[in-house]
Design a protein around this nucleic acid. Structure first.
Lengths: 255, 255
DNA sequence: CGGGAGCTTGAGGGAAGTCAACCGGGGTGG
DNA sequence: CCACCCCGGTTGACTTCCCTCAAGCTCCCG
């Protein structure tokens, strides 16, 4: 559990959300005031059950979470990965019902923000509206890249690409991280990539035997990022993402 | 070519964009004033080439278009289908560079709106900002459903689901259309569904032989929508999409 | 009338799924 | 405190869905 000031501090930090460049300092403070209690979740716990109504968006503070859909026969497809600082259910910013579920992949902490209040704030402060829109566009960008993976890439490339993406997303503003915590099971990886756990296992073995990745417990290390990017045909441009000239968007223009 | 008043009229009509419920009448007028010349495209023409910079978003007036990505070996994955009234490149609302391409699937007409001017308008009119955000969320919703198809559904179900989706999206506010123009090639369908043209052909044959669809030239007819939905495990909830209480968003609150 | 784009079908191959078994480790309950 | 159990990882054998390559077809358009 975090106290309120920690939460504020977190939201002011360089999270994907605030990195959008749309949020002025007052915007961040106003958002921080909306934050409810931080909730702790066990691994595999639903933050928002599939297909239900919810009145809040969840900002992930710690741990990994995902958006997923389930087919009638029980197969699960993960349609989005949330890392610390990401909003898990951006759709709930405008829609009362989610057409997916949000579940944690690890132990996790998240704070809920009430839709009504966020909307009201966004109507007053264009910077906040802009930040939400920007995040939604970013999520769309990532999902488009996943669709390319799912539709047109081999299992081998899919896994390589996913690892590259996470490396970049965790690396923040710096270059991609060359070593990081990799706390997801092979089943969960398969659910992101449209593969079975068995085939994910074999594919990870192939990547390891090629020396492209080194897995040590819950850590993954990338000996040569260039090699891995090339193997996965990965181009991180879709994650680059400084906003296009947020002139006229910043709330400071109204201050 | 449409003259300006036709364009205005079109934008005031029940397009997916204006149906969001965020646009007040003045918002629509203000947007219509931004519309540039309507451009006519041949089938298979790039509206925005893959990965380039663009300074405008394109509202599709007539015909079908798509967003796509290409892998190194030339395989194409379509990551979004634009029908009349849709915006083809919502990302360009905030990002100068697209990480996909936009191309027409049929003859088509589109009008470009300059990003700078749309952004300026959105900063003044929350209804316009809200409509863009809402469209982006809607696009995300659809792409999530495609990811489920790509990752976890058989070719048979993918095709059935796509036809259901188009029926609903073309049907507008009414029920899904039971018969409509289906102007795309099997190659293009395959590119949406992550299949080869050959396998798309066989799969369509299967659907036809089961009586789930009837193809007559460029028309498709769905004898029994319930059957097709069931075959494709299709639940159209993700397209439903009235906005969640756009209170406080409507520009009229500022009028 | 010729040519190309799109549709159709067949035969064979390969990537990933399915089923099954075994192993190691950490949590838990007796 | 130890034994058990369950979860996750690993590997093998077999199956299946979809891809590849190839050929022939129709229809439109020049």
């Amino acid at each position: 559990m975090m106290d309120n000031s920690s939460r504020v501090e977190f939201m002011l930090a360089a999270t994907p959300f605030s990195r959008s460049g749309f949020l002025a300092a007052e915007d961040k403070l106003a958002l921080a005031e909306l934050a409810g209690e931080a909730r702790a979740f066990k691994a595999g716990a639903d933050v928002v059950a599939e297909g239900v109504d919810t009145d809040r968006v969840y900002l992930l503070i710690d741990g990994w979470a995902c958006r997923y859909k389930t087919s009638r026969d029980g197969a699960r497809q993960i349609i989005g990965l949330a890392l610390p600082g990401d909003i898990c259910n951006l759709d709930s910013f405008m829609r009362p019902r989610v057409n997916f579920g949000v579940t944690t992949l690890t132990r996790a902490t998240a704070v809920g923000l009430q839709r009504d209040r966020v909307q009201a704030l966004a109507a007053e402060r264009p910077g906040i509206a802009g930040a939400f829109t920007w995040c939604t566009i970013q999520e769309n960008e990532i999902l488009g890249e996943w669709a390319l993976s799912l539709g047109r890439h081999s299992a081998y490339k899919r896994v390589a690409r996913l690892i590259c993406e996470v490396a970049v997303r965790l690396g923040g503003e710096h270059a991609a991280a060359a070593s990081f915590e990799w706390p997801v099971t092979q089943q969960q990886i398969g659910d992101m990539l449209g593969l079975t756990a068995v085939h994910t296992n074999r594919t990870l073995r192939d990547l390891r035997s090629e020396g492209l990745i080194v897995i040590d417990g819950r850590q993954v290390r990338i000996p040569d990022m260039t090699e891995l990017r090339s193997a996965g045909e990965f181009d991180g441009a879709y994650l680059d993402a400084g906003p296009a000239s947020p002139r006229g968007w910043s709330s400071s223009a109204f201050g």
